[in-house]
Amino acid sequence: MSNILALAQKELRAYFVSPMAYALFGFFALLFGWFFVASMNVMLQFSMGQFGQGGPQVVNINEFMIRPLFGNTAVILLMMLPFLTARAYAEEKRSGTIELLLTSPLSDFQIIMGKFLGAMTLYGIMLAITLIHIGILFWYGDPEWGPIVSGYLGLLLMGSSFISVGLAISSMTKNQMVAGLSTFAVLLLFWIINWVGDASGSTTQTVLSYLSILEHFDDFSKGVIDTTHVTYYVSFIAFGLFLTAKSLDTARWNG
């Protein structure tokens, strides 16, 4: 455990010493803030639109604002998280520091978990920034906290899936650009995978829908924690980490 923590700390340091962490946080906050304002405007318009029926109505803030906001956040994450994970292994392989890790008394499991924990911590901080916005909603409005908690749980699970895929892909190349781009392409594919489903029969449709990574998020943002979705994300994460383990091992045999 101490080794995992040591590695996680090392990862975090690398993020914070380089402009990486600040760029991620800054742009994430900017984009999230933008979507926040946009969703608020939509909600206000909708509320004003009720004028005909006797003045502005109180609309459900969870349904009309927080849910679309979480949906948009999922898309921002899909685009930003590949950049967070791209360097994790690729940079170590390029600079040769992977040799230090693999010849130290560390198990592959410790290395993989250390990197995962490091990236997850950074992602956690990223999500924590958005609590400010949600706090504002609580200050001025009266949202239900249930769907918000489940929404954050969903974001956490979905982000972890993105991270585990990103780490797996990063472990397969020496090139950060290739790692980032491939991760983005793979995640995008998992997002739109069910878009071709409609015309190709109901069984295919069901399977593809099940695979779609954003599909599983929807229920979380509605306030429903369904074990199907939790299972999906957890298996996704486990699969990504397993792939990383295999890829490290393969790299070792092939030099």
Binding site: N3, A6, A14, V17, S95, G96, E99, L100
Partner: peptide, 27 residues
Amino acid sequence: GYLPETPPLYPEMTVAEYLRFVARING
């Protein structure tokens, strides 16, 4: 103890931090 062809250093760490990290992962 192993010194590879290219010393495996982390550019973002100071020398002392780096050595403390290596000490730590060596248990």
